[in-house]
Computed example of a mutant assay.
Amino acid sequence: MYFTLLMLGSGLFWTITYLLIIQRSWRDRSYGMPLVALCANISWECIFSFLLPPQLIQHIVNLIWFVLDAVILALTICYGPREFPNLSKRAFYTLLGLALVTSFFAVLLLTLEFHDSGVYAAFGQNLMMSILFLTMLFRRRSLRGQSMSIALCKLLGTACASLAFYLYSAPWHHSVLLPFLYVATFIYDVAYVGMVYVQMRAETKIVHTSPIRGDQAETSIQSR
């Protein structure tokens, strides 16, 4: 019962995360999920929606996530080249395609090699995603495509899943890797929330010290 409730909570928070990323990407005309993380995410959802579907409830959640990630991918295709001015569009799309193919087979072969039901791949790429969100924030030096709401929902979504497997999933209690992934991901997620807060403070300070663009920037801050 508690396992199911926590997993439903995880599904809800991650669904909200995806919706917020879509909304923010559309508003800022930028992609909101790190490229490699997106490729791994949509690959996992494709595999565990169509090739190796789980039990009914998780299958439905996976399908919803796949559709939402497909929208995020479409926005990335549309706005992604803007974030890499030194790359031609052809180079960007080529690299994105290679990343998608590589991610798909990496997740699939890892699953088959370790007779995994998607658990190791999911938590492993969650850790990767948490690190990549931090690096994306550092690289952009702005909240373009990002927000505190996204950071918090992402943290809560993964935390719920981690607690569910750590406390209530006996078949995985033998693992020495999963607890490390739970803790490491949580640490990076908390760090990301903290860095988003710092960036919000910095951008708010710019609003109050910029007489030229203050009104525009204030509107941007208030809409977060």
Rank of each mutant, 00 (worst) to 15 (best):
Y168N: 08
F13A: 05
A40C: 13
Y166K: 09
C160N: 02
R201M: 10
M136D: 02
G97M: 08
L51N: 00
F180H: 09
I64A: 10
K205G: 01
D215N: 02
I22V: 10
F92Y: 07
P81Q: 06
Q222I: 07
T102I: 15
L38Q: 14
R139A: 13
R24Y: 07
V101A: 14
E83T: 07
F123V: 11
I64E: 11
F138L: 12
S147C: 08
E203W: 12
L68W: 13
Q199V: 05
V107M: 14
G11P: 11
E45K: 10
E203T: 11
T185V: 13
V119W: 01
L52P: 02
I212K: 09
A99E: 08
G9C: 01
F104D: 08
G97A: 07
L143Y: 00
V61D: 03
G124I: 07
R139V: 10
D69H: 15
K205N: 11
H174F: 10
L134A: 07
P34Q: 03
T158I: 15
F3W: 05
G32H: 15
L178G: 15
L152N: 06
L75S: 05
T17M: 10
A106L: 15
G11D: 02
W65V: 13
F165H: 13
R224S: 11
I21H: 11
Y79L: 00
T204M: 10
G11S: 02
Y168M: 09
M7V: 15
H115G: 05
V193K: 14
L127M: 07
I16F: 06
P171C: 12
F3A: 05
V190N: 02
C153H: 05
Q216L: 00
I77Y: 02
L143P: 00
S162R: 03
E113M: 08
G9K: 04
G214Q: 04
I131W: 09
R90D: 06
L38K: 10
L163E: 07
Q23M: 15
A191Q: 08
Q199A: 14
T209S: 02
T204A: 11
S103D: 08
F165V: 14
F180N: 03
H59C: 11
A37Y: 00
D189A: 08
V193G: 00
A184G: 04
Y188G: 02
R29D: 13
S149R: 05
N62G: 03
